[in-house]
Design a protein around this nucleic acid. Sequence first.
DNA 1: AATCTCTTTTTGTGATCACATTTTCAGAAA
DNA 2: TTTCTGAAAATGTGATCACAAAAAGAGATT
Lengths: 230, 230
Amino acid sequence: MKPLVLPPLARPDGMTTHDYAFNRLRQAIMVGAFRPGTSVTIRGLAEALESSPTPVREALRQLTSIGALQFLENRRIVVPHITPARFEELISLRIALESHAARRAVAHLSERQIENITAIDDSIETEIRRGDKVAALIANQAFHRKIYTANPDPVAMPLIESVWLQLGPILGIAMEHVTELYVVDRHREAIEALRRRDEEAVADAIAADIREGIGGFDQQAVARLLRLAA
Amino acid sequence: MKPLVLPPLARPDGMTTHDYAFNRLRQAIMVGAFRPGTSVTIRGLAEALESSPTPVREALRQLTSIGALQFLENRRIVVPHITPARFEELISLRIALESHAARRAVAHLSERQIENITAIDDSIETEIRRGDKVAALIANQAFHRKIYTANPDPVAMPLIESVWLQLGPILGIAMEHVTELYVVDRHREAIEALRRRDEEAVADAIAADIREGIGGFDQQAVARLLRLAA
DNA sequence: AATCTCTTTTTGTGATCACATTTTCAGAAA
DNA sequence: TTTCTGAAAATGTGATCACAAAAAGAGATT
């Protein structure tokens, strides 16, 4: 058994073991730390997290509920495989969900929040220039999340994160093959539209942003990689 | 402790205790067997299901992942409350998700499948005439599910079911106050559009179907009920 | 060298128990 | 009657163990 490498994550006080395991695994999958097809074991993770099977199993079950993992028929636990068709469906779903969420958030965004979002966009570019792919990815997710959660009832957010999780393993592959990240300027476009309170323009900018790339990764290139891996 | 009443559900051979608990609770919530704010206990459910805390807790954790339940700060487990605003957000999300899923399914539907869907629609009307609200609800969900899962990669389906689950408790309230169900003929409209392979018309029919009612329940009336309950 | 068979190890499952926190509720005090 | 207090009960959490199924590996056979 390979000694599982898990990106570190602080454990806030009072957080249950189960919650900690869930969040840490979730974060790991979301930023591409696991490749499609990777299998994990309850006991292995329990050891890596210095815990016991019970809370880990609960965390794994939750992760399967949101599409991040899969319990196979033979009881094996794996990171789901992704076909090119499934990848295309997920991107298309992201566009539908996120342009919807963006549209429903516009009316609730304060000037202050828009400034905040602009600052996050700057940090994305900083990370891209520094070449830190994972940090750029996380900042990009923060950018999107900040917009959608301006809605006081962000019911779409958990669903969006579920799609991000399902795309995570792809990002891991992409990060291995893509050497250069590029700055997406659809973000500036979205911010401008937010300032004008133009719901349709915001939705369009977000849709274009997703269609053109996955947080700094060229989508066409990723699709090509997938076809090769299949 | 009130002796929990849970709608029965067959347990297929080889299904794990955990899976059975999950499916049974899920089904119960989806058809409105629990009111918003209802609290459940792990031991209580374990007893009702003639099982033990471990698999039940896993099932409950999974249900929270998909928005069907909520673990509060004080460790209480409850069916989430719904505000009118949240209800409106969920309906709007249903429209976005399901019109998208319908559009992406059209190209994959065979004539045979369309016939099947027509038959399901007939069964909805039968149940409505018989006055069996729960059966009508289940048939209505089957109608929608059958369309969306024609897509060989139905990645949106789990998200759609998550929204259905979050609307479930509302349906329970609706069923208490609404005496008369009515037949939605947007279904016929959708079927006609499916036959013509008209993606936009299908998406529009589904959107209208959702906007006008929740599987036989008048949406405006439900919104009014919610405002009263709040 | 490839395939089959049987043993050993690994792994998921579910029941049980101890512990800490929360809730409940009876009885006292205002 | 209402409010406060403290003991008892209920509840979520997590570790452990026994069990059955699956996987891995060793050795024999073809």
